[in-house]
Nucleic acid binder design. Sequence first.
DNA 1: AGGGTGTCTTGACATTTGTCACCGGCGGGA
DNA 2: TCCCGCCGGTGACAAATGTCAAGACACCCT
Lengths: 331, 331
Amino acid sequence: MTTPQARLPRTPNSPPTEFGGDAVTWAMWLYYAEGRTQSEVAKLLGVSRASVANYLSEARRRGLVSINMQPDLLARVELGRSLAQRFALAGAHVIPAGAGDESDLQDLRRRLGIAGSEVLRPHLGREAVLGIAWGRTMLALGQALPEQTIPDMRVVQVSGSSLGGEESSPEFCTALIATRLGARCQNFHAPAIVSTREMRDALLQEPGIARQLSRIKTCSVVVFGVGELDEAVVFSEPDFLNQATVSHYLAKGAAGIVIGRFIDGCGCGDRRPPLGSADRHRARVAAGGAGAHLHRRGCLRKLAAIRAALSGGYATRLVTDAATAQRLVEA
Amino acid sequence: MTTPQARLPRTPNSPPTEFGGDAVTWAMWLYYAEGRTQSEVAKLLGVSRASVANYLSEARRRGLVSINMQPDLLARVELGRSLAQRFALAGAHVIPAGAGDESDLQDLRRRLGIAGSEVLRPHLGREAVLGIAWGRTMLALGQALPEQTIPDMRVVQVSGSSLGGEESSPEFCTALIATRLGARCQNFHAPAIVSTREMRDALLQEPGIARQLSRIKTCSVVVFGVGELDEAVVFSEPDFLNQATVSHYLAKGAAGIVIGRFIDGCGCGDRRPPLGSADRHRARVAAGGAGAHLHRRGCLRKLAAIRAALSGGYATRLVTDAATAQRLVEA
DNA sequence: AGGGTGTCTTGACATTTGTCACCGGCGGGA
DNA sequence: TCCCGCCGGTGACAAATGTCAAGACACCCT
């Protein structure tokens, strides 16, 4: 087919990178389902092999075809089994340790996000209600989710705003994940922290706020990161956590933060237990471990926070890396 | 890593090609989830790249990782849309025509099986009840299903035994598919055809039989092939279909067989309509077309059978190949 | 009608991947 | 204890795949 053949007729006004016809679909079918080589597909479709490669890449980019693995596989790893048993979890999903490079914190978060999105997958579907917290690991999770369109699904912001950095804020994480899933996004239009109790009570009276709070109770699955309690976090939330607050709660025995609430080593939060942890039917996925394997100041704090979250029964599933998992079972 | 390194410790008594440890899992994770190259994975795991390739191939063979595509895509193919509209189907899934080789009947069946398994996928899940008929296309469907474990799911044999060949018998198809899905298998422990009405009535009184019949009514989705009425089929079911029976029903206007019952061009079965076709909420997937595009004696019969099944409303979805679909819309 | 722009396609190249024959250790049997 | 068979690992080669810059066609605007 060296002659410059006439283009196939297309639908006239198709979006930029859109390909109106069936070529992508058929290429995808022949390649992925029937296991033919790209050359064979090219011959069958009458185009060059390079085009077939393009079609396939397009199909993957658009999520028309997806490879997925049983998320339980990660739980079958020996370490995962020990962890799950030790903390009475429904599953502990352990990803391989990274390159061991100390500068890989960002990379580790990216990989935790990938793992989290896999673990989340079986919980998604029509009528599902997904509660999303915030943090950089949540952000990574959103970025790892394949784009899809799930009708009748909702993504609910489970914590108030003004937490986290710009990109890892609750609003942004929730919106990103909702967009990726093609689901409805229901944000929490109120700050997480207000200065007076009167303001708090007034806010709770707001119909929109009350509605959001009741939505949170209907979540079929909640995902959150585990934050450590440490001077470093003060930097990013000046209005929420300051030196005085952290010291105060540390003195009271707090070990970590889960969805904006302090938890201690016994699993008792500072006020009511978050997440409806009494509800055994709701899946609660904790993603943690970013940084916990590094030999830094915050390392022990991070471990303590995760251990507190697990002991307290805040999570039913944990996603973490091998190094962190190792330390968790050792203790 | 050219030095012959010591072998990793393994579980002693593992089955032949079984690999006890986590290496396969981690290789799979790093490669498929994180998108690293095999060389990188090899470096991380400390083995040769060839071994990684072997691990991955093992993972695919065991179905630990599976690629799947949106089944609706197949329905979006133009031909599929016409078909669906013409016969008021919820979807008509059209796979590309084969190589055009007349000897490819077996291959076509294999490909129909792949398509069928994709179409079936969204109907599977917890609490789902899958009704399975029989035939070589059903067998191919089972073989195309990836191995998985779906809790609380059942696979129900919807027709009596002694139909089809050894491998394509109702029992075998049902068992195969149940195994692949990790679901419970509920067989029909009775012959499909008995010689006297008295025997039939007596069987219906049996508690086990009655229970199975009620199970069939609870199926959330039923899958079946469409059989043509033709002298050739006599060969495989000597006890059921013989020359006389076929001629008898042909004379009465029968056009095909669906789940062991004769149907005619108007969609009226010989006795009651099968499959609870009045139930609009139940998905009924028909897989048909094997051989229908070939220029043989049975070709028209096969087409007529499929058309009868569609016109009669026995199916809500059809899976077929492009050549057959073409002929169906032309008529 | 002419020129510009953007998209799709293509051939060529570099990389990645699948496969096969060979190798080495381990375990079982004589 | 020695030998043999088997299983898994490895290196090297061939095939398949991803990527890039350049070309061609259609559409749009003037």
